[in-house]
Nucleic acid binder design. Structure first.
Lengths: 221, 221
DNA sequence: GCGGCTATCTATCAAGTGATAAGTAGGGTT
DNA sequence: AACCCTACTTATCACTTGATAGATAGCCGC
């Protein structure tokens, strides 16, 4: 209720930011087929004004991606996992809590899914990064903490990756339930993420131990 | 390469089925904003012909839902879980393998997500059923197999439901990776579903045991 | 093979949909 | 207070898109 109407003649930068912010909210609600007229209506401006700030609809959508995803990768996640002075459980809890705070948001989850369904490569590129930089490290550190062979000696198997995918899925799906299906979820999502991470750490090392001894199907990608 | 062109003047029922089947493939690929002209083009017919078989686009989409979801609920799942003459592990494996065969398909997963993003109540209604009929039973049977209090005595807690959601998420996400992100997944998905279910049964009962003894936060819905 | 039923097509409408051009007016500068 | 830059609006285009009306022609029964 700050402004009755963010009206006429704003400085260029300010208007651009207003548009970008509303575009994030709008496209995350309606998908990228949402109409520019409706977006303009929500901004309290006319539709042609959008085109004074963005060359076309595609440029506007690019900006939305930039706002929601760009530079959200936290290099600390990798450092965190590498820091063997700390117990593994603490490292994993911090990682997954932090990561969940990033992805368990309306805009993040929905634009992520819209983007995936549209076949953008954003998703596969990000998940490729996640797999190589995070998942592989998680498995490496679990093996190390349990005195199992390093991935340098025995490559990470497909099934080991699947177990880490499963934890990732469990966390991500909290957001899907809340922001896509519109279901109620527990108020304290941190507690759930924590419980899931602990359960993972309780159960998975034994499986990995069995895998690094048994016949292995190394991950193909 | 059977038919050069499935041409003119088919019997009414046959044409209707052709349209319905192609509509499933088409809308699962393009989403419900896909254009009727493009659908007609894929069918090798003109766009107005669609309207001789379906009152409007909405009716066509209703038919797609019907084709993909209606009458797919298998009452056997409930009977299966109730059958205490069989070991719990066998029952859960059969349940989740069968369920995964239903949902881990291109059309099922994508239309499911499109529907969720559009805010259809299909998703929440189906998941409500799943929660009450399946999840609650899974927890009840785990408790019973481990000589823990029945849900009649100690209601199922929020966290217990979360653990079952997590298994569901892990399985569902295999389909999301494959059919929405376009990632490679293990060839033998049955083996993965089996491993996830076993891991669930290995780890979760201990957590549930702790929960039914510790202070409980009963599930609110 | 011919007549008629109707599956299918051609032509077209009306409402929208992204985008552009040219006019209007707000507000900082002097 | 007059001026001018440009943020913003009005008017409009070209194309798309769901939907309808009427013409055309394939196929079954005789």
């Amino acid at each position: 209720m700050k402004k009755p109407a963010a009206r006429r003649r704003l400085p260029r930068d300010e208007r651009e930011q207003l548009i970008a912010r509303e575009a994030v909210a709008f496209f995350s609600e309606c998908g990228f087929d949402g109409h520019t007229r409706e977006l303009a209506r929500r901004l309290g401006i006319t539709q042609p004004l959008l085109y004074r700030y963005f060359r076309n609809k595609e440029a506007l959508i690019d900006r939305v991606y930039q706002e929601v995803y760009l530079n959200r990768w936290n290099p600390r996640w990798e450092e965190l996992l590498d820091d063997r002075t700390r117990p593994l459980e603490g490292r994993l809890l911090e990682l997954y809590l932090d990561y969940s705070h990033m992805i368990l948001r309306y805009e993040w989850i929905r634009i992520w899914m819209f983007s995936g369904l549209k076949g953008m490569d954003l998703n596969s590129r990000f998940l490729g990064l996640l797999r190589e930089r995070i998942f592989a490290r998680v498995i490496r550190e679990i093996r190390h903490a349990h005195h199992l062979p390093s991935p340098d000696d025995i490559p990470i198997s497909e099934m080991e990756f699947e177990l880490v995918w499963a934890l990732h899925a469990s966390i991500f799906y909290i957001g899907v339930r809340r922001w896509i299906y519109g279901l109620e979820i527990p108020e304290n999502t941190d507690a759930v993420v924590e419980a899931l991470t602990r359960a993972f750490l309780d159960g998975v090392p034994a499986v990995i131990a069995a895998l690094t001894r048994g016949p292995l199907a190394p991950a193909t990608r």
